[in-house]
Design a protein around this nucleic acid. Structure first.
Lengths: 196, 196
DNA sequence: AATAAAACTTATCAATGACAAGATATCGCC
DNA sequence: GGCGATATCTTGTCATTGATAAGTTTTATT
């Protein structure tokens, strides 16, 4: 019995790799954050995981499937990070959103690259919708309603601002704003200010 | 003499194509808006223009060079569209920004795809800076200064909001917000509301 | 008119994603 | 406990891609 378990563990770790699916996702993420999205080739990922280039097929079908699964984990992580701060307010939630993007630039970018991921992928759509739902709850919690504006308008405005700041920050496009007239500020401070 | 001119015109248009550079940019743009960024291969572009696959080299060096040139024209167009409305105010300028994105989704997306364009490209950097400069002028024109906020913060906030709305709208991620509780609104109305 | 330079084509190369066919391990069932 | 079915993984191959070197044709210079 103990032996059986050992053997299972061993075979799980070795030949049939046991959980190649997770291993591939980890490899993909490592490559993503180290070398950017363009390094996310099917061959590069499988090479990094130490398996043959066709090993991903049973688990993901094709490259888009693999990347969609990776993007799904990203949405789940973002939603998990957002959830605890929803009650605190829009400012706090916005900061969490942007911080997630800055700390996982590759993953965050991938999550919105419709040309390399498969938006029809069920788990991805579900995770994406869950993240989106956070926004709805956030606006629902907001106390100061502006009666002349649509609820959808407020949601779009908030999401747009937060998302735009995240995208621009990742691309380094906010850097020139950090040093204005001799004064230098940190990116964190700029974002904090921008989100007020 | 007339014959000479004719011959020049003919040779200019035909064999050495005369202005293959512009022709390639037009082909690239056509493919971009018809089939998306993933259709922007070197071979697809040259095929569309009716020349061999290596014909782009003298003009652009490589694919990234060609796409950078295309992105440059995008920044120039955006800046040109923005300039006349800067004095009107942030709301009008924001609408112009987002409308440009929606009407040229492929081009706008390309302008911010740092992995396929070459940010070191001189003309691109110049055009990009010019667009960026519009934002600065816009904020400079704003009358209601909020003293507690940094100028950079205000700039980042405005750019982020506008840019984020553009990106989300292009990806179709704002569509679910259009129909809330039975009421339907147009994307244009939503953006107008969100930008207030 | 002759020579230099630029534009363009052809041919080739390494690398990619997908896929079919085969080998090998796991699982369900008896 | 073993055997057949199934899933996993490898190997080999294919069409396609971007880049580049070598050769050809046009344009520019003098």
């Amino acid at each position: 019995m103990g032996l059986q378990v050992m053997e299972r563990q061993k075979s799980k770790k070795n030949y049939h790799h046991g959980d190649l699916r997770s291993a591939l996702l980890r490899s993909a993420r490592a490559l993503l954050e180290q070398q950017g999205i363009s390094a996310l080739g099917l061959r590069a990922i499988t090479r990094h995981a130490g398996v043959s280039s066709a090993a991903a097929v049973p688990h993901f079908g094709n490259l888009a499937g693999l990347l969609s699964a990776l993007a799904t984990t990203g949405h789940e992580e973002l939603a998990a990070a957002l959830e605890p701060v929803l009650e605190i307010g829009a400012h706090a939630a916005g900061l969490v959103y942007v911080r997630f993007a800055i700390h996982n630039p590759g993953l965050f970018t991938l999550m919105f690259r419709s040309d390399v991921i498969d938006r029809g992928d069920r788990p991805l759509a579900a995770a994406s919708a869950r993240t989106s739902h956070m926004l709805t709850r956030l606006i629902g919690n907001m106390t100061d309603h502006q009666p002349q504006r649509t609820r959808s308008g407020i949601r779009a405005a908030h999401w747009g601002k937060v998302h735009g700041l995240a995208v621009l920050a990742i691309d380094g496009l906010l850097d020139p704003l950090l040093s204005s007239q001799g004064e230098d500020m940190s990116l964190e401070d700029l974002l904090d200010d921008a989100l007020r």
